[in-house]
Nucleic acid binder design. Structure first.
Lengths: 290, 290
DNA sequence: GACGTCCATGAGCAACCCTTATGGCAGGTG
DNA sequence: CACCTGCCATAAGGGTTGCTCATGGACGTC
């Protein structure tokens, strides 16, 4: 179970081809073939069916383990190096679109005013990617958002020992087109909307809704991408519903937000980071949480 | 960051000696020296100070990552092999002392009556060890107990993708000597006992109490080991207090239990297992949870 | 049915890693 | 103070590993 062999295996499984994996990894096809054979011999199991190349059941199982394992390996390396490295003034901040609220933007602005030397790069991406970037040290701090019961921590993707600190909690609203029959309500229960048509979007995971409020929540339209304005425009045009933090709907845009009364939900933002050595990154973390 | 080098590093750090690690791992001292040198060269950092041999700060950081990483590696291997192996009739059950309640013993008895072929081995050990045994496939099922807020899952040690299912929740009581001034109370708040003298025992983690009810909980006596009767005897003799599930104090033994009214706490038992292929282990898991 | 693509296999060679042997350094002892 | 002992580092040697190159065989396509 050499990680070297494991990366090869993951690459072959992703490419669906020994030769493609070989060129991607910079080996010859023969080397790949031998590596896979070595891994299969080590476990005593066939991991890939050939022609077409796809994982066997045991291979699929191994794949589930291999990806997070390799991530943790890279994360461990990055963490050790980061702890030993000199503090930098370039800070990388990875955020989910709804994780970077106006309030946090203000705090960041104050922090930059207080420490003019601070150079900040903000990257917007999905939750898992934020965790990966932080774990691998490509970002110093991460901000992830999610739906949770009040004061219930979000479950970060498993990328090693990352510290999470809640930085804000805010009410959740259902986004409805302005003319929607329910748009005038003071509050709505999520279960009452289980039969409505919903948007499938990375910004509001439907499986989480189903876990919280029972089955249902059929998909009307799928949205790929990170942009909140696009999402609100889709809601306003009646393509389907979604949940958003209350503040995201305060700017007028043809959609209105109706608070969710049950289940009790909050939109929670958490700061994610590895062990921060004293320095600009730790200062910024304090500024964002404080 | 070859796992091979990582195990060597962990062993050397534990032994505090290159030569001792060499004999333990079945290498020559020279090989160990070269492996550590290779790891240090790979990371570009000194990991161990020599004479005496002990981890540098970077080494300590790496140690924190290495142990769970190696555990996950073994766990992944065990999981893949287990999924592919033929179902066995020998079932290993790893339990914490307070995790194996009378109710669960009954369910196990019924399961054995229903499937006479079932051979069961029960191992008692601590929480972390249970998780390790299950993760590495040495036990098929695990039962761990802990204090939690109601319906709040326990956090299992990070040993890869293990499934946890709650199997019982029960009230928590403070164990007091029979003649204790508070022994007659109908209920007690944990914070009121922060200044009492407590037993430090693996069966009731004091750090958890401090997290739940604030600082305090000074240690009167340390108890090492798994035996609940020993613990109750210590309480009865006035050596200090501890928390136990209500049922553990129903048998008379010179100690009485007073329910804890705040914070709201339960003693929770969870079943822990990897992915179970259909067969005896899965049947038993259903019997224990059902 | 011929061809092309793709994976498996064998030979050769370089790199790696372990062992043996030896050197250097620190601490304890006569 | 010299010596000895225990411990880690380093050099050299050899076996194994793991790569590339070359080729063979199986499947799919035209």
């Amino acid at each position: 179970m050499d990680p070297h062999l494991l990366t090869t295996f993951v690459t072959v499984a992703r490419c669906g081809s020994f030769s493609a994996a070989a060129t991607e990894l910079g080996y010859t096809q023969s080397a790949i073939s031998q590596q896979i054979a070595a891994l299969e011999a080590d476990l005593g199991l066939p991991l890939l069916s050939r022609r077409p190349v796809e994982p066997t059941p045991a291979g699929r199982r191994l794949l589930e383990h291999a990806e997070p394992l390799l991530l943790r390996l890279r994360a461990a390396r990055a963490d050790v190096l980061r702890a030993a490295a000199a503090p930098r003034h370039r800070i990388g901040l990875a955020v989910t679109p709804l994780g970077f609220t106006a309030d946090l933007a203000d705090r960041l602005a104050r922090a930059r005013a207080a420490w003019p030397l601070l150079e900040v790069t903000v990257v917007t991406c999905g939750r898992e990617r934020v965790a990966v970037l932080v774990a691998e040290g490509e970002a110093d701090l991460g901000l992830v958002d999610g739906l949770a019961a009040p004061s219930d921590p979000l479950r970060p993707p498993d990328a090693g020992p990352l510290t999470t600190t809640g930085v804000s909690e805010e009410d959740v609203v259902v986004a409805l087109p302005a003319g929607h029959p329910l748009a005038g309500r003071a509050a709505l229960r999520l279960a009452d909307l289980a039969d409505a048509r919903w948007l499938r979007t990375p910004l509001c995971p439907l499986p989480r809704l189903r876990a919280l409020a029972g089955d249902g929540f059929p998909v009307a339209l799928e949205h790929r991408g990170d942009d909140v304005r696009t999402l609100i425009a889709l809601v306003a045009a009646g393509h389907g519903l979604t949940l958003l933090p209350a503040s995201a709907l305060r700017t007028p845009g043809g959609a209105v937000g109706v608070p969710v009364s049950a289940p009790r939900l909050v939109h929670r933002v958490e700061l994610l980071h590895g062990t921060l050595p004293p320095g600009p990154a730790a200062d910024l973390a304090r500024a964002l949480t404080g």
